[in-house]
Amino acid sequence: MSILVIADHDNASIKPVTLNVLAAAKAIGGDIDVLIAGDGCGAAAEAAAKAEGVAKVLVTDNAVYGHSLAENLSLLVADLGKGYSHILTSAGTTGKDFLPRVAALLDVAQISDIIKVESADTFVRPIYAGNAVATVQSSDGIKVITVRGTGFDPVSGEGGSAPVEAIDNVQDAGISSFVGEEMAKSDRPELTAAKIIISGGRGMQNGDNFKILESVADKLGAGVGASRAAVDAGFVPNDMQVGQTGKIVAPDLYIAVGISGAIQHLAGMSGSKVIVAINKDEDAPIFSVADYGLVADLFEAVPELDAAL
């Protein structure tokens, strides 16, 4: 078997989730090649070569791959992918965007968001917002898969020395172009990579009150998240949303503040190692999944927590 892993990267380095995808590839077994497609992505390729278990790094460095436009990237991956038994990438917004196109171009199904590898053709994935877990078996010649990073412990990002091979394969579909982007600027870790997350819900009452969470987050080196209720109420932007319709996270410590614990939120964070809930409603469903529950007014408890750290 041979596996092609398409790395998530920012040209300068590979994103940590790539190491989780490599772990899923390792669980399938076989030679693992990593593709770095980008614009000025030599450093990311060098980083990928150091990851554990990589046989070879393929690099295509061209402006057409600069913003991971799905129309161009999918043509490249479908072309290269023909020679592999499995094509894997992370289930982030880039992978979710381009990989189904690859599957369609190869006329095979895609298996989305796997959290476990049973065998080379059988995988486990959540359905119905995590309220059920399906085991699916594929009869396709090429298995096209997105991996939920939190389902796999990452391989080491150091110690490897895979050869880096530049390939000349420029695919420009000519039907889409990049206009601009607006990235949230923050010194805090990205939610999907954070070891500690503190999230606020409707109980926060307004966006300004998230400052008390940010203060705790800065002391703990934590990311700041929110429930869908807080996002829908306009307190904070959608990219902070943790849940089935937002980000799926699994940090070492998740602190839920003023979050009732709707099913869709639990689906996004119940993989966390330790869960703390702070809520004044002692019947809130969040307490049924929390390792440590504190029934208290968050406007008293959070500043107290801040002071105690």
Binding site: V108, A109, I111, T122, P126, I127, G130, N131, A132, V133, A134, T135, V136, Q137, S138, S139, D140, S270, I275, V276, F287, S288, V289, A290, D291, Y292, G293, L294, V295, A296, A301, E304, L305, A308, L309
Partner: peptide
């Protein structure tokens, strides 16, 4: 005709509730 077969569908692993702490000091 589909190429993916559902082998089985199960309930997700459930987390059980832990303990309630009395105050912030105990939590920390």
């Amino acid at each position: 005709a589909a190429s993916l077969k559902i082998v089985k569908v199960e309930e997700p692993a459930t987390r059980s509730a832990g303990i309630k702490v009395a105050d912030v000091a105990e939590l920390v």
